[in-house]
Amino acid sequence: MPFDRNPKLGRRRLLTGVVGGAVLALLPSFPALAMEQLRIGGERGTIDFSIGDSAIFRTTGSFKDWRGMLNVDESNVRASSVSVEVNTKSIEMLDLQQTTMLKDSDFFDVDKFPEMIFRSRTVERTGESTLKVIGDVTLRGITRPMVLNISVTDRQPNAPAGTRYARFRGEGKINRSEFGMTKYVDVVGDTVDITIRADAWR
């Protein structure tokens, strides 16, 4: 290529090329803008809960069979979404008697309501690695609002399909009386603390 005979024009072209290259370098690549779809579930995570307002009467349990989907938009966090479906029959308590009792009609009524479902309405970033997920939980045919506070660790954005993309921990609360589970509320308490710990993968 011949040299430009106009030094000023050559400098302008050089400057334009450098600035243009710098702008392109700052722009995110197309894959970064794409919605990332991640899976979570009981095979790689836990949903635990505890009931009771005091250490004396506090009861703990978990759900073994559940699945969920995370749609993550890094460029627009509010466009992200979370959905979780729990098989209520997979509930496990400290002993068989407790497990049977919570499957009964006074509590989860698992034969009539085999699923508990959470659907997000909005997602807000609260910190560098923390999020607030505002949504609704449906239990025993009743839908009530619920907030999950999420922390993200060990993020691996270049992880191949089938391997861990990140680890998530979510914490929330519900009042069981709002879902018709009022038995022993005066003795045990109303508040149910829910904790989700899971790997998310593509």
Rank of each mutant, 00 (worst) to 15 (best):
V188C: 13
R119I: 07
E128L: 10
L70G: 04
S81P: 11
P145T: 08
D104P: 03
D73V: 00
D95N: 04
G20I: 03
S129V: 03
I47D: 00
I91R: 06
F107Y: 08
F107K: 02
V152N: 05
M93V: 09
V185R: 02
M116C: 12
I117Y: 04
I47W: 00
F108Y: 05
R121G: 15
L26C: 08
G170I: 01
A34I: 04
D48E: 12
T191H: 05
I40T: 15
F63N: 00
F108L: 13
E124W: 11
S62D: 11
E85L: 08
L24W: 14
G42A: 07
P157I: 02
G17R: 01
G61F: 03
L15F: 06
E178F: 03
P31M: 04
S80W: 00
D186W: 11
F179G: 01
G17L: 05
K112V: 13
S120A: 06
L94H: 11
T143D: 02
E85S: 14
Q37A: 14
T195K: 06
A22M: 15
R39S: 05
T99H: 10
Q97H: 10
N158K: 09
G45I: 01
I117M: 10
W201Y: 12
M69E: 14
E85T: 10
G52W: 03
T126H: 14
V187G: 14
K103S: 07
G162E: 02
V23D: 05
G170S: 13
T182V: 10
P7M: 00
V82N: 00
S83K: 03
R202C: 06
V19T: 10
L33F: 08
G17T: 11
K112F: 10
I174T: 06
R11C: 13
M1L: 08
L38V: 09
E36K: 10
R12S: 13
L26D: 08
G52T: 05
E115C: 07
E74T: 04
M116Y: 02
E92H: 10
E43D: 09
D136Q: 11
G127Y: 14
S50H: 03
T46R: 11
T153A: 09
R144L: 05
A79L: 07
N158C: 08
K89V: 06
R140T: 05
P145W: 08
E124H: 10
G127A: 06
M1V: 11
W201R: 01
G162V: 13
R164E: 14
E36G: 05
T46M: 04
A25I: 11
R44A: 13
L15P: 08
D186M: 10
T99M: 15
F108D: 13
